[in-house]
Design a protein around this nucleic acid. Structure first.
Lengths: 111, 111
DNA sequence: ATCGTATGTTACTATATAGTTAGATAACCA
DNA sequence: TGGTTATCTAACTATATAGTAACATACGAT
């Protein structure tokens, strides 16, 4: 399963329901019931998705009586940003033929 | 397994060996043997990782006699960038307490 | 005290992932 | 032709993921 933090974060993001949950949490805390509502999924399935997100540090669980609202913890997303950031130079120019870019880069940074 | 493209890309990235392979491909094409070298892993294991990367569109396999060099295809990484991009406003300010930000946002964008 | 709502836990199924060893394929080299 | 190098496929194991149904717990309301 590769349990380093970044791998945990990426595999947590690798499910549309979990990405959708995160997106909805940007507007504030939501309860499990509220989060479940848009999905055709049973309660336990949602609970498991929330556990995955929590284990990755992407959400925090609170207490409000019998409710357990979730709050976004965006920290680990920065690591994802930092992962893809160095590749920005590659897209937008030659998607299919990287050769020239690699040549340029090879010139300035000999490996 | 959630086979939409973005999910495929994210779960392909959710393994340190595969991220390392991608990083090494930024300096040019490499053969399977060259890619295997830094890892304590058998050939078939590497082949499987390459298949995962290829299925996600992150690499391309070429032919050079009996060699099958790999080339980076950075396109799908842009989608990952676009995924995390909107969350940038959340980190760097209040990691733990999102409340003020949410309050601001709630004011301008009533949901 | 009991009821109902909200959420979590357990046990189970099916499929996917990550790795192994052993064998198959393919292309070059002598 | 036969051998070597490079890579992939097949079969297998162990563990993880995504879902279900059924049950348990926790808390507020009546």
């Amino acid at each position: 399963m590769s349990s380093d933090n970044l791998s945990l974060t990426l595999s947590a993001l690798a499910h549309p329901a979990r990405r959708s949950i995160l997106a909805r949490l940007t507007t504030g805390e939501l309860t499990v019931a509220e989060l479940s509502e848009p999905f055709d999924m049973t309660g336990p399935a949602i609970t498991k998705h929330l556990n995955v997100l929590e284990r990755a540090g992407l959400i925090e669980r609170l207490r409000d009586a019998q409710r357990r609202p979730c709050r976004l913890r965006p920290g680990p997303l920065k690591d994802v940003f930092d992962l893809v950031q160095p590749y920005r130079r590659f897209w937008g120019e030659s998607f299919d033929r990287l050769d020239e870019l690699l040549a340029e880069q090879g010139a300035e940074n000999d490996n």
